[in-house]
Nucleic acid binder design. Sequence first.
DNA 1: CACCACATGTAAATGGTTACATGATTCT
DNA 2: AGAATCATGTAACCATTTACATGTGGTG
Lengths: 183, 183
Amino acid sequence: MKVLQSKLNRPLSDLEGATLAALAQHGEATSYQLANDFKSSPSEFWSGSAGAIYPLMARLADLGLVEGKAGRKGTRARVLWSLSKRGYEAMLTWLTDVERASGMGFDPLRTRMVHLNLMPEAKRATFLASIADKTKGKKVVQFPSDSPALQALHESWIFARLAWLDQLEGLVVLLSPTNDSAR
Amino acid sequence: MKVLQSKLNRPLSDLEGATLAALAQHGEATSYQLANDFKSSPSEFWSGSAGAIYPLMARLADLGLVEGKAGRKGTRARVLWSLSKRGYEAMLTWLTDVERASGMGFDPLRTRMVHLNLMPEAKRATFLASIADKTKGKKVVQFPSDSPALQALHESWIFARLAWLDQLEGLVVLLSPTNDSAR
DNA sequence: CACCACATGTAAATGGTTACATGATTCT
DNA sequence: AGAATCATGTAACCATTTACATGTGGTG
């Protein structure tokens, strides 16, 4: 008698989708390797902790989206994961989801800019300048094992963000006097 | 004997910070109003559900960052929140946190672009075009009660994003052939 | 009268987090 | 010999989510 597989009756979470995609890039990978992908990513949004990835892989296996192969490296046991056919399809569905891909996500700077008027007026310009500095610092890549294409992608993001910051410096003046009534 | 207040031994979560900031903008507000701020925000990252905001306000009150005033509108009872002195300081600390403000956050498009090579080559260009379309659609604002400054801020974000998308179209060609080895 | 906006909350589930625990292998 | 990396997991916690529940007041 076969163990029943759970059915996927919800869209993949973004972490699940991104993990499947990372697995697709590797072909085969251990949970440890996948966790490391997130740890070494320039975005710190996902920690890539064991507590996130190991249960997640178990979940995906239960859903029949990944298959585990008990392998060894030397005498050390390990599980090599790979995508199933359905897993590959699920990953593509997640990847090509225009609705979700065009969302605004979470932007810690945008969230704060909305309330810039609450910041002491004298600090606003230096605040933005510091952000720009920090952002430029990220151009010099800290994450290892990246293809030139990924590097270019990363830099283009930084570049776009710096351009936005330039725009913002113009807006500071516009933001400044308008809302000082609130407190 | 006074009820002891909990102490804040961790940084404010971004939702907590943003809520305090929203409250600062209002001066006084009910939890319902604050929840609505998030509901009507162009970013869908936070739902602004009652289940999020009501317990959050209770938490902030317990921390002594907000003070509730039992008010009424007609015969209908309601709690009007306002920032305490410490709450205002905590909000400013959150608002001016350069480290966090310069983080990359979560970007659903960036997350996917990293894996664009997994997308069928024929779909890539149309995918990006759809995203650009959807993004342009957001310029026409759906959220109510916005000041011209907030509108300008929102538009500048959209503008920057569209510029990035332009860049990406150039990168598609670069991304295309490189990584097709993986599966 | 029906419906919607205002207003306040609770309950259960979930998808993450940090921290802990263990052990083998490789590098210095 | 000791440290770092590879590898796998669990436990406790937490801030969210969706869904449910309840009721008032104003509008068409």
